[in-house]
Amino acid sequence: MKLSINGEVHDLDVDPEMPLLWAIRDIVGLTGTKFGCGMAQCGACTVHQDGIAIRSCVTPVSAAEGSEITTIEGVAGKEAEALQAAWTALDVPQCGYCQSGQIMSATALLQENPKPTDADIDAAMSGNLCRCATYQRIRAGIHDAAKAIG
């Protein structure tokens, strides 16, 4: 099976039912994408499939074939860069385990809605749990990034 991740095509010999998350982490070896729940409840595994944020823990790797997968290691562009700069400036992460997923969801949000309100942010980010509850700074980071992009 061929899988394109961050612009690179990987030839994988895996169970087609294997969740994309484990293919990315265990087979391809990119570990920035995290395992949190295995049932699309926490968002730690968020990646982009053709630019759309998806939960890789419930996506069979076979369903990703033929599409372009972007992980935290490959995410680029003005939205992701502005978010990562804001995250660092505000010290958003505490334990940091969920933050790859937060950045991937926030990037998808800003690509679609460059000037989100608090309510827009809450709606778009509700699927990303942060057990450290860094939510106040996540909101602030998204607003700062939106401003920085202009």
Partner: peptide, 21 residues
């Protein structure tokens, strides 16, 4: 002075136990 690990944790580069290879 900002946290030394904020950048790592915002870009997926921070390794946790689950990431040990």
């Amino acid at each position: 002075f900002r946290r030394l690990d904020s950048g790592m944790k915002s870009t997926g580069r921070q390794d946790f136990t689950i990431d040990v290879k």
